[in-house]
Design a protein around this nucleic acid. Structure first.
Length: 221
DNA sequence: GCGACAG
DNA sequence: ATCTTGTCGC
């Protein structure tokens, strides 16, 4: 897919914050999606003691969840992992993998938070704004926010709250298993995001999109 | 000041 | 994220 994203690699966390504060204004938290025929999953892995970053993207048909296409890209790691700035470390490689895609996904599920972020610009929102595609943040652990206890049955969820505002949802994606953290990435509402995440679930804790992207990203060259 | 902290 | 085997429980 054609990517006309102007990604800027900041030279300091101060600069990174400025970029985030600028991009957060462009995040759209309402549904602005077309008919969903394809859902994608993206993730990154590391090799050679973190010197190489490998991005993986997989596209599934929806709602069948059959694999349609997958692409990967490897680059030299350009940014360290700093909580709150994950996107600067993972997006460069992700953009390269996304460029190779022939199938344009209607929604991309990202490994990490969307607006459930200190400055409301987690990796899902950052990527969504850059490439102008609807995105959803699906994280495996809590970053910020508080929530009530989640019933143990698959499908139950509670809003994730930070500073008085709903920044996401904590979802029990499988009975008796740790919940996952779903948040708006870009061009989608929370209810709709939850519906599509649930639509990508089968018998595991993580949606098929992230499971497959995860597996691909951790395979060695 | 102290602790927490997506991947 | 990554290093790593078997094992308990639904």
């Amino acid at each position: 897919m054609k990517i006309n994203a102007n990604f800027l690699l900041p030279q300091s966390l101060e600069d990174a914050k400025i970029i985030q504060d600028e991009l957060r204004k462009k995040v759209i938290t309402e549904d602005q999606l077309e008919k969903v025929d394809y859902v994608a999953g993206v993730d990154v892995g590391f090799e050679d003691n973190y010197q190489l970053t490998k991005a993986a993207v997989i596209v599934l048909s929806f709602p069948e969840l059959k694999l349609v296409e997958s692409q990967t890209a490897v680059i030299s790691t350009t940014f360290p992992y700093v909580p709150g700035f994950l996107s600067f470390r993972e997006i460069p490689a992700l953009l390269k993998a996304l460029e190779k895609l022939k199938t344009i996904p209607n929604i991309i599920l990202c490994d990490g938070q969307g607006i459930a972020h200190p400055r409301r610009l987690g990796i899902a929102s950052h990527l969504g704004v850059l490439i102008d595609v609807p995105t959803i943040g699906v994280a495996k652990s809590l970053f910020i926010g508080k929530h009530e206890e989640i019933p143990l049955e698959k499908g139950s969820w509670k809003p994730l709250i930070d500073q008085g505002e709903v920044i996401g949802a904590v979802l029990r994606s499988r009975t008796n298993v740790k919940p996952i953290y779903v948040s708006i990435g870009h061009k989608i509402s929370l209810p709709t995001a939850l519906n599509y995440v649930m639509g990508c679930l089968t018998k595991y804790r993580l949606p098929e999109t992230t499971r497959l992207a995860d597996k691909l990203a951790s395979e060695k060259a």
